[in-house]
Structures are given as C-alpha cells and as structure tokens.
Computed example of a mutant assay.
Amino acid sequence: MAEFTFPTLGDIRAAAARIAPHARVTPVLRSPELDALAGAELHFKCEHLQVGGAFKFRGACNAVWSLSDEEAQRGVVTHSSGNHGAALALAARTRGIPAHIVVPEGAVAAKLANIERAGGILHRCAPTQAAREETCIRVQRDTGATLVHPYADARVMAGQGTIVPELVQQAPELAAVIAPLGGGGLASGCAIALAALKPRARLFGAEPAGAGDAFQSLQRGERVTNVVPHTICDGLRATIGEPNFALLRAHR
C-alpha cells in the first residue's frame, strides 16, 4: 500500500468544527418494538436526515472545506455512481466551487439527477474501476481539480467519523456500532473515533451477502478484490479500499 496518513481523533474533532455550519447533527431514534425483537436497546442514527440524505455529506464537506483557497478555485473531482457524487456536489456548492463527478454508464438515473440538481458536472465513462480512475486523471489534468476519493481519503474518513462523537453524546451507554460497509470510509472513521472515545465498544460492518468482499478480506487477512457483487444495494457494491482494509484489520 502506498504511504497513507490516517486521521486521528483530533482530525475528526477538527472536521466536526469545519462542517458544523453546513452539516446537521442528526437525531437518534428508538423503537420499543425493534428492541423487543432484537433483545437489546437499539439506537438509530438518522443519517437519512443529513444534508443530501446520507452520511456522505460529512466527509465530502470536510474535504471541500479543507482545501486552500487556491486549490478550491480549481474545484474538486471524484468518481461515484450515487451518494458521494451528490454529496461532493452539494459540499462544493457551499463553497461556490465546481464539482466534477465521473459516473459509469448504467448508473441509476435518479442518482445522476440528484448529482446534477446539486450542481455537479457529469463526466461519463465505461462501467469499470479502471475507466473511472482514468477519467478522473483526465479531468484533473484538464481542470486542476483536487481528487476527493469516495472512501480512501483521510479527509473523507475524518468527516464520516464525526458521527461517533455525536452518537456517544446521544447514547452514552453505547456498547456497539453497526455501520454499512462498502468502500470503508464510514467504518474507518467510526473505528478511529470509537477506539479513542469508547475503546470497549465493538464495531460491526454490515454488507450484503452478495457483496461480501470486506468479510472475505478480513477472514483471509488480505484484501479480496475479485468479488462480483450481486445485490440491489448499489451503494454497497464498492470493493473495500486498500487503506480502509488496513485500518479495519488493525482495529479488529
């Protein structure tokens, strides 16, 4: 793995302050019926009420507002078929800068419409990881935009990790966190924050059985990249990122 500097709890706290004017502190809701079914007290962090409808805005917003003025003028670029692209476009709009979103052919039309409504500039490519990365490089070369990777980015991890300090305040007796796991940006940020704030709390990553690359990777002790996802959960089809896997493996 290329050298990667992981964020710290200090970076997560700085991210929380940075995104505070733009992001929401989402509520935690309870359900006695679900508690009874689970045999445990469940606390639901309602990130569907976040700006853009997903936790992705936290990381994107932190990345955008971490840029220098000179960098910001040239805009940002990412590859995404959904929530991260829309989140980055929304975050870029808060700073008045362009957001270039590389999207694969065949992406969900409603999600592409969300990106465009948020002001994102779409760049279409073939539906392969190589095509996404090559198109991002071309856009960077042509525009000077800064790459904001959907999950293998320390600024994104720190932004996603801001969920945990909120959750610890809202549910002080927290014993475990279950986080959706695709590329691993959210899980990575949560792992760092939990280790510092609630070291006895456990972190569980949830992914579809038909897209179980992270589970297989952690079981084998090496990153598995040849899983072909079969799931309707299009937001969880990403292969776990290289730095994300390294971090989650270390935090097991």
Rank of each mutant, 00 (worst) to 15 (best):
P21L: 06
P32A: 02
A14C: 13
V76C: 05
P32V: 00
R237T: 06
D142F: 02
C136H: 11
A40E: 06
F57H: 04
I240Q: 05
Q169W: 08
E116H: 06
V103K: 00
T225C: 14
N83S: 05
M1T: 14
Q170Y: 07
R220E: 14
L248A: 01
E242N: 11
R93Q: 09
E133S: 07
G183Y: 14
V164N: 14
G189V: 09
A20N: 02
A206W: 14
A118Y: 06
A209H: 02
A23F: 03
A214V: 05
E134F: 05
D153W: 12
Q169N: 07
D35V: 01
A176N: 06
V228L: 07
R138W: 05
D35C: 01
Q73Y: 04
I121T: 10
H84K: 08
P172C: 02
R74D: 05
R124K: 03
A196Q: 12
A63S: 12
T239R: 15
T143R: 05
D213Y: 13
G189W: 10
H251A: 15
C190N: 15
S66A: 14
H84R: 08
A152R: 05
T8K: 10
P104Q: 12
F215L: 14
T225P: 13
L194H: 10
N226S: 11
A113I: 03
